[in-house]
């Protein structure tokens, strides 16, 4: 079943056309690699799906139902989780506080509710363990290495059981060992019937764990092929413009 379908999505920032009539879909158990040059519009597309931007034009369908996201919570409630390219971490807060930001565990209701610090720290520690990260829940994010910061952002996507996970260059700042961890995680997600969109500049990663690759160039989707029917050379050509379409 198609988890997400984008039809004719366009997005302009003033005079800049970041996206023009992009169609994209992804099904259960599928991993899609989204590639393209700097400024091609990859992050913009991810932010539209995550509810950060509303598209200037076009339609979004989640599991066949037409939807629009007015904010990131909407998108989350539809089962979509994202790791942003710039991670969106608060340096002044602890790892655990960052993981749970916007969906803290509370006891009580409304004004009389109270944060359950221990429950959140314990859960965060579990998540870091699963991610094989040495991050401790009570450490301040400002005192963390790039990889630990990425682990914090990744842990957020595991708080719920999402249908679709968007990863915007999740391997840009991490060590080889941790890259392997992220790729394994993507494969696990696929096997358990989740869908993943991986935005990456690393050809190897995309060819290792994705089933399909789509290429954006200057806001247009110029290719969308099964991995089996393409090659790193072809995709490189598509990204750089040496090949027009495929």
């Amino acid at each position: 079943m198609k988890i997400l379908e984008l039809k004719n999505i366009s997005k302009s920032f003033g005079a800049i056309h970041a996206l023009e009539n992009v169609d994209l879909d992804i099904s259960q158990g599928e991993a899609l690699g989204l590639m393209g040059d700097n400024g091609a519009g990859k992050s913009t597309l991810m932010k539209i799906v995550a509810g950060n931007f509303s598209p200037t034009n076009g339609e979004i369908f989640v599991e066949g139902k037409k939807t629009s996201f007015s904010n990131p919570l909407d998108s989350r409630n539809h089962g979509i989780e994202i790791v942003y390219q710039d991670l969106k971490l608060c340096n002044n807060l602890t790892a655990s506080a960052n993981v749970f930001l916007g969906r803290e565990i509370n006891s009580g209701f409304g004004f009389f509710s109270r944060l359950k610090h221990t429950a959140m720290n314990d859960r965060a520690a579990e998540l870091f363990g699963e991610l094989k990260s040495e991050t401790r829940p009570n450490d301040l994010v400002e005192r963390m290495s790039g990889g630990q910061r990425q682990a914090v952002a990744l842990a957020r996507t595991r708080l719920s059981d999402p249908k679709l996970v968007l990863l915007d260059e999740p391997t840009a700042a991490i060590s080889i060992r941790q890259v392997a961890g992220v790729l394994t995680r993507i494969k696990q997600l696929k096997e358990t019937g989740h869908a993943v969109i991986l935005v990456s500049h690393r050809m190897l990663d995309v060819f290792e764990c994705c089933d399909r690759v789509a290429v954006l160039r200057r806001g247009n989707k110029i290719a969308d092929k099964p991995i089996a029917k393409t090659s790193p050379e072809e995709v490189t050509g598509l990204i750089t413009g040496a090949l027009e379409t495929a």
């Binding site: 990131p72 919570l73 969106k88 608060c90 340096n91 002044n92 807060l93 930001l101 509710s113 109270r114």
Partner: peptide, 24 residues
């Protein structure tokens, strides 16, 4: 220290952009 409201204020002061992106 113990309420979501306060936690959100620290987040906004620390990284407004992140707070916004996370639905605050």
């Amino acid at each position: 220290k113990h309420h979501k409201f306060g936690r959100e204020l620290y987040a906004i002061g620390g990284n407004r952009d992140a707070a916004e992106a996370l639905g605050i």
